Amino acid sequence: MQIFVKTLTGKTITLEVEPSDTIENVKAKIQDKEGIPPDQQRLIFNGKQLEDGRTLSDYNIQKDSTLHLVLR
Rank of each mutant, 00 (worst) to 15 (best):
T7Y: 04
E51H: 05
P19E: 06
Q2R: 14
N25F: 02
I61F: 13
E16K: 07
I44H: 08
V26R: 00
E16V: 06
F45Y: 13
K33Y: 13
I13S: 11
L50G: 01
P37K: 08
D39I: 09
N25D: 02
I61W: 01
D32H: 03
A28M: 05
R42Q: 15
T7V: 12
L56A: 15
F45W: 10
G10W: 13
K33H: 14
N46R: 06
Q31A: 09
L67V: 04
I3Y: 00
Q49N: 06
R54V: 15
T66K: 08
K29W: 04
S57E: 08
E51T: 06
Q49Y: 14
T66I: 11
Q2D: 04
H68P: 01
P38V: 15
I36L: 04
A28H: 11
P38A: 09
I3Q: 00
D64K: 07
K11Q: 15
S65A: 08
T66A: 05
L67E: 01
L67M: 04
Q49R: 14
D32R: 04
I44T: 04
D39M: 10
D21A: 10
E18F: 11
N60D: 06
N46L: 04
L67W: 01
T14G: 15
P37A: 05
G53N: 11
V17Q: 11
Q62N: 11
G53V: 10
T55S: 09
K48W: 06
T66Q: 07
K27T: 03
L15D: 00
E18Q: 03
T7A: 03
P19K: 04
K29G: 06
I30N: 01
V5Q: 00
K48L: 04
G47S: 15
Q62L: 13
M1P: 02
G10A: 11
R72L: 03
G53Y: 08
L69A: 02
D52N: 03
S20N: 07
T66P: 13
E18P: 12
T12Q: 05
Q2I: 07
I36Y: 15
Q62I: 14
Y59S: 06
D21P: 01
T12A: 07
E51G: 03
V17N: 06
I61G: 00
